[in-house]
Design a protein around this nucleic acid. Sequence first.
DNA 1: TCAAATAGGACTATATTAGTCCAAATTAGA
DNA 2: TCTAATTTGGACTAATATAGTCCTATTTGA
Lengths: 133, 133
Amino acid sequence: MIRISKKVEYALMALKFISQSDNKLVTAREISDTKKIPYDLLSKILQKLKNENILLSNQGTNGGYSLNKRTDEIYLFNLMNMLDGDIALADCMHETKEKECSLEDSCSIKSEVAKLQKEVEDVFKNKTISDFV
Amino acid sequence: MIRISKKVEYALMALKFISQSDNKLVTAREISDTKKIPYDLLSKILQKLKNENILLSNQGTNGGYSLNKRTDEIYLFNLMNMLDGDIALADCMHETKEKECSLEDSCSIKSEVAKLQKEVEDVFKNKTISDFV
DNA sequence: TCAAATAGGACTATATTAGTCCAAATTAGA
DNA sequence: TCTAATTTGGACTAATATAGTCCTATTTGA
């Protein structure tokens, strides 16, 4: 199916929320409560975004998260790759071909699927968080 | 994740195969053998395509399938809808909103996701089987 | 030293996708 | 008219991916 995962959905909501909390640190709990996002799942997502340098974090009392990039520097395409792994319309389209396609020899549609993949990627490469704010 | 299902993948291969077998009826077994596609699954797909008037079928000995439309009249977008159900980047994007979104009230990204969905749909609406042949 | 917060591993549950099995109906041809 | 080739289609199982939970450790400000 063609869909955006919950992880990415939640990340978009969280990033938008943080971007609108001018410079104040925002806690996972705040976002979870306001946006009705499962706390533990959201925590994981925020941690990931921190590790990917999208967010800055402060531990401990009064801690929280803040943006480490401008909203127009955060591409949806990259978020999707970070959170869901690389986008591959078919198994043979993974960047690192960890999954060999058993149809390889008989497959007759690969090159066109590759084009398609590029076009879909372009849609996501042309969206940043600023489009959602 | 953003991916094309096996069903659609197999449908593309099968339709391409049939379109290249000039007018001769093609059996599910032939396609399955040549393209290494699980027979039962392929059968289901061909049946579906027949019910959707993409294919014509003849039962019995010497039976098989043939195209009921020109390749440039068969849109990838429609294939995907037939085989996988309607494309919805997020739950709230289903045409028939059978799945209510529990975040509805707190959701702040819906309108932008809708735009995104339209752009992705357009990619698939602009591809037909003739692009794969 | 306590409470608020992030960090992160391990696990479970749910949903989706892929694939299999079986029996029925149809039909051409021997 | 019998048989084999074929489509038809329901019911089921298996595999995989996604979503969500639980628990404990670490950091830090007051």
